[in-house]
Write a protein that binds this DNA or RNA. Structure first.
Lengths: 207, 207
DNA sequence: GAAAATTTTGAACAACGGGTAATTAAATTA
DNA sequence: TAATTTAATTACCCGTTGTTCAAAATTTTC
């Protein structure tokens, strides 16, 4: 919102790529909070104090802008997934590493993650994004299956579990405020603890 | 989508309340799946094969329609919360009962739950809905605190935990398909198991 | 069956949002 | 400084959407 650095990007002239990336980041943030349809190009432009038309110098169209946001997210998630799969660790450890990586990635690269609204994408873009997302889903489910097989994960329905995990993860962007009192590490820790250990107390209480 | 019963509501004349409720239910469902801004009154009207104008006989405006959807949800959640608080059980049991009740409530009353987009509500309606939602949040967090005190819940940050739980719950409506192969009981079971017991296997594996 | 009440419609409006074209302004190069 | 490239603006178009109003259609009441 009041990220002055973003406005300054548009002060120093001739830096096409930096501006394009700034637009992407802010757009992703606004899409996350308010949703794609509820965010107008005017609002995005106003954030940089430029005209709506100027955006078209950096972005082809609004759907393509959404598509690029998705691609940022998918690039991040897929990279984390590759790293996780390359490690030789148990199923739970892989699940833990994946979500920790994704949440941390959001911290570093800014809010590139985005609420899943790809129904509004043009057909071909939709197919592309959708299939990549589904691929990630099934890889996560597969990790859960191997975790059950190696004995590190309890006998849960893999597909359902994956959906619930993803859901909890996707919702974080909706409420997380970087200027708040919780760091993303704390959020990640809590997230992991909840899903791995569960709420139930394991310490015997002498009472 | 192809719920023929809904269309028939508009066949038998003079049943103002039934029609109003049918509109509410379908609107909530569409808002859940596509989002508020992306759902037009035309689409809602088309679902019943009536004109968009006819909707205004049952609903004051689109924002008020959204508000009523929220109120349906809040009524449900608050009722479950009252019941849960009245029971004398441990913290974990209360958490479990709450989410089971809310998920089951969605099954019975139809998809009354709704994605949180109340930024688009008129000021006064926003304040009302928002404060009720926050009240629910803090009651849930309080339950977690009592659970930590009574030793049934591990030492987690209550506020953060509550947000993550709510997030996972809110996301269910986005992907759950009543015509699919999973019942809402199965979803609820998996949900509860994940948050209460965690993914980690507790059974010692002899291998 | 006529009159009154209740639903539904069709036409039209105003606001908004995405997108384009022509133009101006600024910065780089020479 | 002149010519060229790069940025950004203003003005405008057009489709969509929420909303209103008067009129038509239907149902109920008497």
């Amino acid at each position: 919102m009041k990220n002055r650095a973003d406005k300054n990007v548009f002060d120093r002239r001739r830096d096409h790529d930096a501006k394009r990336e700034a637009v992407l980041r802010i757009a992703a943030e606004m899409f996350n909070k308010r949703g794609y349809a509820a965010t107008s190009l005017d609002e995005i432009a106003q954030h940089f104090s430029i005209s709506k038309t100027a955006l078209y110098y950096y972005v082809e169209s609004k759907p393509v802008l959404l598509q690029m946001c998705y691609e940022l997210t998918l690039n991040l998630c897929e990279q984390v997934m590759v790293d996780v799969l390359a490690s030789n660790s148990t199923g739970v450890e892989k699940i833990e590493a994946y979500f920790r990586g994704v949440i941390a990635g959001v911290l570093k690269t800014g809010p590139v993650a985005i609420v899943h609204e790809f129904a509004t994408l043009p057909k071909d873009a939709f197919d592309h994004i959708h299939s990549r997302a589904r691929m990630l889903d099934s890889k996560l489910a597969a990790i859960i299956e191997t975790g059950i097989a190696d004995g590190s994960i309890a006998e849960v329905p893999p597909k359902l579990t994956e959906l619930i995990l993803m859901g909890a993860n996707n919702w974080i962007q909706r409420w997380y405020n970087p200027e708040g009192d919780k760091t993303l590490e704390e959020v990640a820790d809590c997230f992991i603890f909840l899903f791995v250990n569960g709420l139930k107390s394991r310490t015997i209480k002498a009472d």
